[in-house]
Design a protein around this nucleic acid. Structure first.
Lengths: 252, 252
DNA sequence: CGCAGCTTTGAAGCCGATCAATCGGCGTGG
DNA sequence: CCACGCCGATTGATCGGCTTCAAAGCTGCG
């Protein structure tokens, strides 16, 4: 099913058993009783709305957050009001892992659309993990996975051109939404062109031009925030190795 | 003291008590007996030499590696022989955290100069961490720290220009070496210009030109791999906020 | 001593940023 | 209900930094 009108979708069902990490990110190897224990420490908040902050840079770190529905962006506010978008977080994804080290948030997290977010007090989670080896292992995996994804992003920013970047962004969105049972080819982008550009290290105008070009090339259909992917495999190809043989990047 | 002739420094003392994580990355909060336990699972290898691999992409993940002396680069081999450098690892730093998730190395790690590396079997480490809460916490911090650093790198690649990138690279090297008791202003770079360029998302020629320019501007003195920083604070300034007011970056 | 590889330097071209202006949707208020 | 105004998105034109291409210089090693 396509998720139409996400932007103004206010009636979010918060009542969902096992909204917890158990399903969202730790799908394997937990005994039912352990799942119950994990579930018991999780706080469910009322729906948050566009513009609300989960936390701001500089605040003390207390909890991890799991997106249940909706989407969140993390960003580093820079001097002169500008901001660098560090990531977009879709349902099932975790926010705040980077703050464990200094026990203080280095970035801010802002809700992009009406969203349901679970809060996981880290202190209590840590105690639980110490008692449940498989949970501890899952936590290590989770942190490790984040590092691996960052490496992919490093590669994207370091080596890929604008076309490849946007293609990678779109295929990433596609596959992540798909994992949550949403359509991989028809979705709404809750973030602005400006935010996409910031995330990908591109100017807004470049992002806009590329959307237009992709549409002209029959890769997708775009209407504002609504995206229909018409040729996913072509996008994936483009996101991966050098796309058009026209101008190949040096392998530096 | 400056570390002269690092490149051909073959007589590395491997015999060093507490070379372990205890000193390298987990400086706080461990009881002496726990340090002993941690130390006991660590394997010390004979010195490795330039070009040796710690592991290659695709190999099964078994251990983390800690650089004791020397330096290591991690890189993602791409098709057509090209490689993307993901990071440089100096004494005290850990390698392999990204492989925990899939229990398989996604990147390769190659020794840049004669180095002493400690191997930490992860399975056994994990068991130990489960039994020592403060060790578990340190491990979370370590993983989290890595994520935070990746975010810094994302910002660098996404927003900074060539000049800022090299300045950031140099100040990073400076401060990391300094942490290990080496000179922050006089050091040898064990990696090639090409590898620096790959890491920073720049062409070799650009890196070379910038070294020349920095020297002309009196910021540093360069001779091959030997770097003397003459104006560290200017470099730090340059690496941080927009450097020369001449051409300011859009805050996208 | 001579080659191979890395580094440096020069020149030209291109991609994406920047500047500039219009378009378009959406919320507001009359 | 519609006109207005604001802000994001789009489109066009120009500029510039970095890449690319090319070639010489340097260094270290066999």
């Amino acid at each position: 099913m396509t998720q139409r009108k996400v932007i103004s979708f206010d009636t979010i069902r918060v009542a969902c058993k096992n909204c917890s990490l158990s399903q969202l990110c730790l799908p394997m190897g937990l005994a039912p009783e352990d799942v119950e224990r994990l579930d018991s420490i999780i706080k469910r908040s009322r729906p948050l709305h566009r513009g609300d902050h989960l936390f701001r840079g500089g605040e003390r770190f207390r909890s991890l957050y799991v997106v249940k529905t909706g989407s969140v962006k993390t960003y580093a506010p820079s001097e002169e009001g500008g901001e660098q978008v560090l990531g977009f977080h879709l349902p099932g994804e975790i926010i705040g892992l980077d703050a464990i080290d200094k026990a203080c948030h280095a970035c801010s997290a802002k809700v992009l659309e009406t969203s349901a977010i679970c809060e996981v007090p880290f202190q209590r989670f840590e105690e639980l993990a110490a008692a449940i080896p498989s949970l501890q292992h899952q936590m290590y995996r989770l942190l490790s996975k984040e590092i691996g994804q960052d490496a992919d992003m490093l590669l994207l920013l370091g080596k890929k051109n604008a076309e490849e970047r946007l293609a990678a962004f779109l295929t990433s969105m596609s596959s992540r939404l798909s994992k949550r049972g949403l359509s991989p080819t028809d979705f709404y982008l809750s973030m602005s062109r400006h935010e996409i550009g910031s995330y990908l290290g591109l100017a807004v105008e470049t992002v806009s031009r590329l959307f237009t070009r992709f549409q002209e090339d029959g890769l997708l259909r775009v209407d504002r925030k609504h995206v229909e992917v018409l040729n996913l495999s072509a996008l994936e190809m483009m996101a991966g190795a050098p796309p058009s043989s026209a101008h190949k990047q040096r392998s530096n």
